[in-house]
Simulated assay, not measured.
Amino acid sequence: MRPLVLVDMLSYTGTKGGMETYTRELYGHLGRMETGLDFVALASLEGARLDLSWFPGEVIASRISGENRFIWAFGELVSSSWVASRRKADLVHSPATLGPMWTSMPTVITIHDMLYWSHPELMTTPLYTRPVMWMEQRGAANAAHVITDSQVSAAEIVKYLDFPRDRLHVVPLAAGQPVDRVAVDGRTENLILASGQRRPHKNWDRLIRALALVEQDVRPRLVITGGRGEDPLAPVVAEAGLADWVELRGWVADDELADLRSRARAMAFPTLAEGFGLPILEAMAEGLPVLASDLPVLREVGGDAAVWFDPLDLESIASAIRLAATRPDELSVMAAAGLERSRSFSWERVARETLEVFHRALAGQG
């Protein structure tokens, strides 16, 4: 009888960006491998209504809302372990940073970042910060092994959660299949693309204000996707007098985002803190040059294949934008370098190395 892995997908609602990309790609690829394991997912109320045909096993539809923070928190701490026991699971995997506070079987948690610990001042809901920190502590204390996306995040998990380094595994994320090298040419539209949720650490306000410093005769149009509801960046655009230069789009479908990437001259990522930096890797895989914050965690992803700027310095950001708007020769070199860089990351590797951690946990190693 094959070991059964319960996958905690209570946070999966279709609105969580990179963590959900990770879950889809990981389990989609595991489904195409001989793993020696069976899988069952515990889905949120919202997630169970989505197309989960990529998941390689049964999906249990719960009544737990992944959008209601308090109901979801209870589900993460208690309900997932109860269902795992009821289904006689041999292992629990929590792919979205938080996990059960107690289980009778080994648990593996993928912790994507430690932003609530390293940058609590940038979190949107201060009253929620302490509870999240406590939940991360409890989940890690129960975990047999922890997977994370970068060396920077691994160091922070050891620092803040005191998790043993020998049970901590760095498995970098990946992007889709890189495009052909020929496809990097022909980006003639003076457009900069930026994508992400409207959380303070994303630093969108400085990107907008830096755009105002770029001379109008070369200034590119800026499209920022990823907002939901009333966009908090609208007042910033109005204050900077950039209504004709900045387009704020909401959450866009994958095909619309791919279209924007194919037309844009570069992608801007002005973040102040990340656990990995998946958007810049996805851009590189599509031959899109990247302008990004000069942070160690992003250097792990982009190496020398990006234009790096100081995310706290408006003129530094503006200089990167000017380069993208006026130096097509350098953009072509960057696009080729980014494309080559993206080929060193793969979801097949993510699946393979994660599977190795699962088997270590099942064997009682750690």
Rank of each mutant, 00 (worst) to 15 (best):
F276R: 02
E348Q: 15
E315A: 02
D304C: 11
L278T: 07
S262E: 14
F269S: 06
D294A: 07
L278I: 12
A292V: 03
A306L: 05
A335Q: 10
W251H: 15
A266M: 12
A335I: 14
P279F: 03
G302S: 14
L278K: 06
L281C: 06
S346E: 13
G250A: 05
L272Y: 01
A264P: 10
F345T: 10
D313H: 04
A285D: 02
L260M: 13
A305M: 08
M334F: 15
G303H: 10
W308A: 00
A273R: 00
L291G: 02
D304S: 12
W245E: 11
P279Q: 00
R249H: 13
A258V: 03
L281T: 02
A292M: 11
S332T: 07
P296N: 03
A258T: 10
V246Y: 09
A266V: 12
L257W: 06
E353S: 02
E353G: 01
E274W: 05
S332L: 12
A285N: 03
R299C: 04
E274D: 04
E286I: 06
G277N: 02
D304H: 13
F276T: 00
P311D: 03
P296R: 08
L298S: 04
A268W: 09
R322V: 02
W308V: 00
F309Y: 02
W251Y: 15
A264C: 05
S346C: 14
E353H: 03
D259N: 04
E247P: 05
L260P: 08
R343S: 08
A273S: 03
L281M: 10
F269K: 04
E256C: 08
D310E: 01
L248E: 15
E330R: 15
S332M: 09
I280A: 01
A273K: 00
L323S: 02
T326A: 00
E348L: 15
E274T: 04
D313S: 01
A325R: 08
G302T: 11
D255Q: 13
D259V: 03
L260S: 08
A306G: 01
V290N: 01
G250R: 12
V350K: 13
R265H: 06
P279N: 00
P311R: 08
A337W: 10
M267N: 08
G275Q: 04
R261I: 09
D310G: 01
S319W: 07
A258S: 07
D255W: 08
M334Y: 15
D254S: 11
S262D: 14
M267K: 10
S262A: 15
M334Q: 15
L260I: 07
P279K: 00
R352N: 11
A335G: 11
P296H: 11
L291D: 07
E340V: 12
A318D: 12
E340P: 05
T271Y: 09
D255G: 04
S344Y: 15
P311Y: 05
R341L: 12
W251D: 13
M284P: 03
A306Y: 10
R341G: 03
E340G: 14
D294R: 11
M267S: 13
R263Q: 11
E256K: 10
R341F: 09
R349H: 10
W308F: 01
G338N: 04
I317N: 01
L314P: 01
